[in-house]
Design a protein around this nucleic acid. Structure first.
Length: 105
DNA sequence: CACCTGACCATCG
DNA sequence: CCGATGGCCAGGT
């Protein structure tokens, strides 16, 4: 047992706290975890999430307001977001200023 | 121990 | 708008 939670554990907790209809970027997630420079580690942490996890990994996007995933995963996440009321623009981008979650509602 | 990789980000041209 | 570049840090080989 570890007395101090790992960076990855913090990320998982934050992901589980994302409200429906909201999204977070990798950079924002890293800041919320207390390590704004560890954005790359956020990628690895999220990437190691099992497919059957309950974490809403589809609410995690990049700073450009687009999904950083490809292929089937992209369609699955996009559909999940639209199902929560999030609107995609013509360029498959979403309005960050309207949906970005920074830890407060 | 050194090198490479990564669901990124900000900046520049 | 798109491509290239530098930075950032942990993990894997």
């Amino acid at each position: 047992m570890n007395s101090v939670p790992s960076f990855r554990d913090i990320i998982y907790s934050l992901i589980g706290s994302i409200p429906s209809g909201r999204v977070v970027t990798y950079g924002t997630l890293a800041k919320m975890a207390g390590y704004p420079a560890h954005v790359r580690q956020v990628c690895q942490a999220i990437r190691t999430i099992p497919a059957d996890s309950t974490l809403p990994c589809h609410r995690i996007i990049n700073g450009q307001g687009k999904l950083s995933v490809k292929g089937e995963c992209y369609l699955r996440h996009k559909q999940a977001l639209m199902d929560e009321g999030i609107i995609f623009n013509l360029n498959d981008k979403i309005k960050l200023q309207d949906y970005l979650w920074e830890g407060f509602d």
